[in-house]
Simulated scan of single mutants.
Amino acid sequence: MEDSHSSTVYKCHLLNGEHVYLKIPYSNVKFHRELEAYELLKGRVSIPELLDYWSGDEECPGAFLLSELKGQSLTREVSPTVAYHVGVIHASMHAIQPPSSKRLNGIQNEFSNWSAFIEKQFYSFAEDVKEVLEEGLFNQSVEKFKKMNQQLPSPDGPSFVHMDFRPANIIIDGNKVSGIIDFESVRFGSTEVDFTKLYRDFLSADTTLYQAYKEGYNSIRPLIDLDVVLSFYRFIDAFNSIGWCKRRGIEKNTVFLEENTVRLKEFLR
């Protein structure tokens, strides 16, 4: 599957005409996060059925065999009804809190130290970004992060956050949301981090869709004031994405690198 940027995913065509997916996570940590996510979300949020899994060995981190969600990935060419239901399923996921009766080994609860978690991620990617950006642009980015990070409101949570909630991971069938996929980056944390990519790739394109999404979200739980946090998270998303491209290979991620470099420069103007 071409739109899988981290894990290796195969769409398997069965002799009976049905399809299943074989997913090999990027690392053992991501395998355990995703495995726990299927257990937590089952029956609460629409997701693929986990048909089977293999825990891996020294050479492979493991693998999942997953059912197919009917439909296609979310695009901007949808009705407000679809945007409303995207809001509903997003809020339903955020309504899930850390379980009190079960110890989780894969999904970390970062909520109590949320600011430190965001800072740790930023400076971790900064080591890679420093090798890509010109020095002046890099230093300007670090100073902007320090200033904006101090202005954030109190975090909203603790909630189950996807961390990669983008159109490619939201499956639509007609005017319905079939479900959500890809849980290898999930955490328990603040909801504010989870709107960035959806806004970048979907909500920002049409105010009607944006309003319908908000109405759907608010029907499940109160939506935070996105105007207060989006600029910060869009900025660090662009910055961290540059670091991600360096880690995963600049040559094969050139387009994504260029897109985020342009975004970063716009945020710094």
Rank of each mutant, 00 (worst) to 15 (best):
L74E: 05
I96W: 04
N109Y: 01
A116I: 06
R103S: 15
V78W: 00
G106C: 05
F117Q: 05
I89K: 01
S112V: 08
G56P: 00
K102L: 12
F111C: 04
V88F: 09
E58D: 12
A91E: 02
A91R: 02
Y123R: 13
C60E: 04
G71M: 14
Y84G: 07
M93W: 12
A95D: 01
F125K: 14
I89F: 03
V86S: 01
L66V: 04
V78H: 00
H85S: 06
K120A: 10
Q121W: 08
E68Q: 12
R103Y: 15
M93K: 11
L104F: 05
G87K: 07
A91V: 05
C60F: 08
H85D: 08
E58H: 03
G87S: 11
P99E: 08
N113F: 10
E119D: 04
K102R: 14
S67M: 07
S73W: 10
F64P: 13
E119V: 00
L69F: 13
Q72P: 02
E59D: 15
E77W: 03
Y53H: 15
E59V: 14
L65G: 14
L66I: 06
R76A: 13
G87W: 02
E119A: 01
N113Q: 15
L66R: 03
Q97P: 03
F125L: 07
F111Q: 01
Q97R: 14
S79A: 01
C60M: 02
Q97T: 15
S79R: 01
P61S: 10
H90E: 11
E119S: 00
H85Y: 14
L69K: 06
S100P: 02
W114D: 00
M93Q: 11
N109A: 00
H90N: 10
H94V: 04
P99G: 04
P61I: 05
Q121P: 07
E68W: 09
Q72I: 09
L66F: 05
D57P: 08
I96R: 04
S101A: 10
T75Q: 06
I96P: 10
N109G: 00
R76Q: 14
L69M: 03
H90T: 12
A116L: 13
P80H: 04
S115L: 14
N113I: 07
L104N: 11
P61E: 06
L66G: 02
G62L: 12
G87E: 04
A83H: 09
L69S: 12
S79K: 03
E77L: 06
A95G: 02
W54K: 13
F111P: 01
A95W: 00
Y123D: 05
K70M: 12
V78E: 03
A95Q: 02
K102W: 06
E110W: 12
S73Y: 06
G71N: 12
A116V: 10
T81F: 08
K120D: 11
N109L: 02
K102Y: 11
P80N: 03
P99S: 05
T81N: 11
Y123M: 15
Q72H: 09
V86K: 02
A83S: 12
A83M: 05
K70I: 07
F117A: 08
I107D: 07
G56F: 01
M93D: 09
K70F: 03
F117D: 01
T75S: 15
G71C: 13
A83P: 08
S79M: 00
K102V: 15
